[in-house]
Simulated scan of single mutants.
Amino acid sequence: MVERFRKKAKVRTIAVASRKGGVGKTFSAINIACCAANGGPNGDLPKLKVLIVDADSQQNSTYYYLKHMGAQMAGQKVLLPPNPNCPMGNIYNISDIIAGNEYMEYPTEWENIFIIPSDGRIDQLNDIATGDIKGYDDNQLNKFSSMLFDDLIADVSDEYDLIVIDTPPSKTHASQGAIAASSDCLVVANPDAFCASNAVPGTIADIQMNNSTFRNEDNQTNIIGILINKVSSLRPTSHEKDHIRKIRSQFPEFFSPNLVMCNYVAFNTEIPQKPGHFEWYKHPQAKEQMESFYNYISDKVLSDIYAEAK
């Protein structure tokens, strides 16, 4: 059994969030997890034990991490394989946690990355959960969801250094609960009109509302920053510049030049195909941006854990 690295530092939970699909949320979540497990982009940091929680009904993280053991696409749905650690060959997923059933993390090709996969139904909270929640209003459902994720994090926190939650690209009860339960949240956006005017302000407002509703003043979900992803090049178009300026002017405290990635990062990264196999090393500028991205995340979120190596 792989042991966690940290001794005294607290486990950190990063929710990766956006109200818009296709911005690179799963891409960001997977690369944070893989870099942490690899010992950073260059392998010169301690290797952390990571749990991925796929809370997205699109199941992209699930397919990436479990395709090697037989996860298959069936139309728009990913069919999950039996968990190899279960003698009975059972299949477990995020809906088991919502329903109050037993669950078991899946191993991955990475010896220190594990995953709780999505079965594609997490947005159907009312149908999955046990008990009578049919009459709950939105606030009650968000609270119910946050308690489920709180319980999950408490249950697994002793085993891991880092938990990364890939949230749905919408304002669902599942996404609100995951964000409310997390210690930290990374907001992902593209340099476009919808993100600048709707998705980013909406996601930030969700986090702030969850903090005021579900969290104590001394235990707020920390907004790590806003990742501006899929910029066309090192020289953004005039329209991209306008949208980036608008996001920066609204939320200067969450903007950083280290949280900007160009299209060539996604084109050359495609998410690591094998443990330690980072395609973006082949592109110097993609490598530089990915290193800056992870270094920013580690400084903001993981510094207490990495400090134990000194």
Rank of each mutant, 00 (worst) to 15 (best):
K282E: 05
N60Q: 15
F267P: 01
V78N: 01
I204M: 10
P107G: 06
D137N: 14
P84A: 12
S238L: 04
Y306K: 13
K274D: 06
V265T: 07
A180N: 14
D137F: 11
V78C: 00
K10R: 09
D242F: 15
L51A: 14
D166H: 10
K10P: 05
D123V: 08
N42R: 14
N60W: 06
D150Q: 09
I116N: 05
I247F: 12
Q58W: 14
A99T: 03
F5E: 10
L48A: 00
N38C: 06
L186E: 03
M73Q: 13
R4V: 07
N222C: 13
Y103V: 02
V187W: 01
N229W: 03
G75V: 07
P87N: 00
S292F: 14
K8W: 15
H243S: 02
A199K: 08
Y136H: 07
K49G: 03
I228L: 09
I297N: 00
G276D: 10
A178F: 03
S118N: 03
D54M: 15
I122E: 03
P84R: 08
F144T: 06
K287S: 07
M73T: 11
T62D: 02
P169S: 00
R6D: 10
L148K: 12
Q285K: 08
M261G: 01
A99M: 02
S212N: 09
L125C: 05
Q285T: 12
E279Y: 03
A33W: 09
P117V: 01
S145F: 11
C86V: 13
I165W: 04
H173C: 08
F149M: 05
P257V: 13
I271F: 09
K77E: 02
A55T: 15
N263C: 15
E308T: 12
V156G: 08
I163R: 01
R245Y: 12
G24E: 02
I97R: 00
N211Q: 15
V231D: 02
D242R: 15
G21P: 07
K310C: 03
Q72D: 14
G131Q: 05
D137E: 11
D192C: 15
T237C: 11
Q124H: 05
I297D: 00
N139F: 14
F114G: 04
S197P: 01
D56Y: 11
K67W: 04
D206Y: 00
P257T: 07
E102C: 03
P117I: 05
A196Y: 02
Q273C: 06
K134F: 11
D192Q: 15
S157G: 06
C35D: 08
P84L: 02
K20M: 01
K47L: 15
K230M: 10
M147D: 11
Y264G: 07
G39P: 11
L48Q: 05
P82G: 07
P168D: 06
Y106N: 07
D150R: 10
E288I: 12
K47S: 13
I32Y: 01
G89N: 12
D56E: 11
K143G: 13
K47R: 15
K287Q: 04
I271P: 05
